[in-house]
Amino acid sequence: MSKYLEYVKQTKHTVVYPPGWSLVNKTGTWRSLRPVIHQDKCTKCGLCWIYCPDGAVEKKEDRYEINYEYCKGCGICKVECKRGAIELVREEA
């Protein structure tokens, strides 16, 4: 029996997935273009962070970082960055 069916067996009624089960969907694999933040050019304005639909830009103490496990590579961050601090690099096949 799959781990998932195990869950179904014990769960009640209508809850079909445990909260956070979606983390298994590594949406980073969808990406063909990889955004790279050049920290030296970054002014920490936060536009890439606020505009990322997937919350894949993470605000750290002193910098913004991209979570490549889940970044889908849409490139919004690159287009919205006023300083040109984000570059899109083709992913290796």
């Binding site: 909260p19 956070g20 979606s22 983390l23 298994v24 969907n25 590594k26 949406t27 969808w30 990406r31 304005c45 936060g46 536009l47 606020i50 505009y51 990322c52 639909p53 997937d54 919350g55 894949a56 605000k59 979570n67 496990e69 889940y70 889908k72 590579g73 849409c74 490139g75 919004i76």
Partner: peptide, 28 residues
Amino acid sequence: LADVTTEEYLHHGGMACPGCGAYLGLRL
């Protein structure tokens, strides 16, 4: 922008298309 919470209310792994405007709307 500085006042916006860093808390996210959606786990990763949502299936929206890359660059989805509606998904961004929900996140915000």
